[in-house]
Design a protein around this nucleic acid. Structure first.
Lengths: 346, 346
DNA sequence: ATGAAAGCGCTAACAC
DNA sequence: GTGTTAGCGCTTTCAT
């Protein structure tokens, strides 16, 4: 504490070599005789020397840290944090993937905001999850020339060559998957409940749903509820659906907590799930698995999305060719009791 | 992109002042005439100048980033991530609190490991959640003189003056709270299910439970299952409890997923919750709320713990007096159906 | 194979 | 109130 930490100079002196040599033995640049290397290593060890990452960062103009902008953190009210499972799995997997790339993962809220922590800008690149229409952050990063990738497309962004690189969340395919599944499990009056954030997931799902409804020749019925309302939002959505027109016999709710809240109301109203109403959530969560009945969902596989995002960003940072993830689809349908066709009575 | 970003020098030249003046106008040090400040600000604006955080960091020997070591990330298998709710809420709240202190929050795995990302060490300080007995990370940080705070005490650490500063998780009080609640709801053969990590939560709960059992004159019955086994761990624990001696009529399971798994097995065995067995989980989660029946729990209030940890660390970093959190207790019992006394029949 | 020296962008004495 | 200048700890030509 009292004695300052050793620098490259101390090691050089102690090993009787120049700082260049020390630098080289650690970075692997240049050439250093094995014997010398050994001496340097020993000296460093003895002194407890660790290269100063900040100094390296200044020199290399690269800190080894990437930032994750979680829109769920944009608010000052962490109690509003929604989609906890998705966030946790994404952040966790992103951190692990980053470490595998030798990078640190910083959690930041929107750095375009007035309260932007300076540190946020120290990162080498950004991962932006679920950017929204004409996202100001995307605009800022683009104009500042800061490398970034998004998870999900940026709605409204020009699809020109300059379109920001992103990890495909396959919202179109997954929406169809969920809707077809509801159809096949017998539903014919299928409603959609979306969140209100203007991100790809909400917007594309709605668009696909409209097309799908036309194709199936059913009357579309949609409700939009803010994500952060959680169960309460789901309850309201269900109430709205029940109040307006014939009760749906299938619901696709994009947010897990909305699905949960909806089931509550339906059950309270004496409707049986899945016999009277089938339901599928558009995002998986523990609570869906534990619910009664367990609720089917689209597992977006945030772990995989995070891994891809980190890989993609890391590749861009290194100027490496970007990995092609298009081979393997991501996201899958998890069928649980809430949408399972009634088991044949033995 | 092609043109390098402007430095303090460029701004100085463009504003017709010295670099010192520019530095001062931005840091607030020294004194700069308002008029000059204005000129500098304008010039900076025009050039799109942002102080380089890394250079500042090098100079000040402080980056403005703190690291959160989440033990759940120590593994390379993010799918093993357990206690997702706790992690997400903690990380989210920590990130928000950090931002409020003008700090960034970095997620890192154990930096003592061989694969330590260099960047991890760039942080100004560390938050270590749930350190384990004789934690090597705690030892490393201590000997390296790196500021840190832990959430929960470090078991086995000397309680000497040098004992690492920590946020009190009140494990003793909360364990008693849970056990007394089970007792009051009618349970008399109360078993404890803990995880196997050697952290304060597991160790102190076990110790308190033993004392409490003696005091209540009941025969202690404990099972330890690894946290990452999740539901399966809970199932095993319940099976073990049922196989050995008289079936418990009350279970306190420290991990939420263990509680969930246990309820599954109990129900399968024809036992009714809470009528035959009352159950309380030692960590809250969405899935407990959505479970059937909803499961009571100790809400550790990770949001609050995170906030306190960040505040404590930030204060230490600035040499400010550390906030005294002892005033307000943290953690509370959330009573749900799994341990509610049967409602009086109308 | 090794070393001297010039910075990376910024801050903080210390002059004026 | 403003400017000069010496570094922070490291990497990297370019000599030797």
């Amino acid at each position: 504490m009292t004695t300052r930490r050793p620098t490259i100079r101390d090691v050089a002196r102690s090993a009787g070599v120049s700082v260049t040599t020390v630098s080289h033995t650690f970075t692997g640049n240049g050439t250093v005789a094995p014997a010398t290397q050994q001496r340097v290593r020993t000296a460093a060890q003895d002194l407890g020397y660790r290269p100063d990452v900040i100094a390296q960062g200044l020199r290399r103009n690269r800190l080894g840290v990437i930032a994750l902008v979680a829109r769920q953190l944009d608010t000052l009210h962490p109690e509003l944090l929604y989609d906890v499972d998705y966030f946790a799995r994404f952040a966790g997997a992103a951190a692990v993937a980053s470490l595998a790339e030798g990078l640190g993962l910083m959690l930041v809220s929107d750095p375009t905001g007035p309260r932007a922590a300076g540190a946020a800008l120290a990162s080498d690149g950004f991962i932006v999850t679920e950017p929204v229409t004409d996202d100001p952050l995307v605009a800022m990063l683009t104009s500042a020339g800061i490398p970034f990738v998004t998870v999900g497309e940026t709605p409204g962004a020009p699809l020109a060559p300059g379109s920001p690189p992103h990890v495909d969340i396959e919202s179109g395919r997954l929406t169809t998957l969920a809707l077809d599944h509801l159809w096949e499990s017998g539903a014919r009056r299928i409603a959609l409940v979306t969140g209100t954030d203007r991100n790809e997931w909400n917007l594309r799902s709605a668009a696909v749903y409209r097309r799908w409804a036309r194709y199936r020749r059913i009357t579309p019925s949609m409700v939009h509820v803010p994500e952060h309302l959680d169960d309460e939002g789901g309850r309201r959505a269900a109430a709205t659906l029940l109040a307006s027109g014939p009760a749906p016999d299938g619901i696709y709710a994009l947010t897990s907590n909305h699905a949960l809240g909806a089931v509550e109301v339906l059950t309270d109203q004496g409707l049986r799930v899945p016999d009277d109403v089938r339901i599928v959530a558009g995002s998986d969560a523990e609570s869906l698995r534990a619910a009664h009945p367990p609720i089917s969902s689209i597992d977006l596989q945030p772990d995989e999305l995070a891994r891809r995002a980190v890989e993609l960003l890391a590749a861009r940072l290194d100027g490496r060719p970007v990995p092609d993830h298009a081979q393997h689809r991501v996201g899958r349908l998890v069928v649980r009791a809430s949408s399972a066709p009634p088991a044949p009575q033995p």
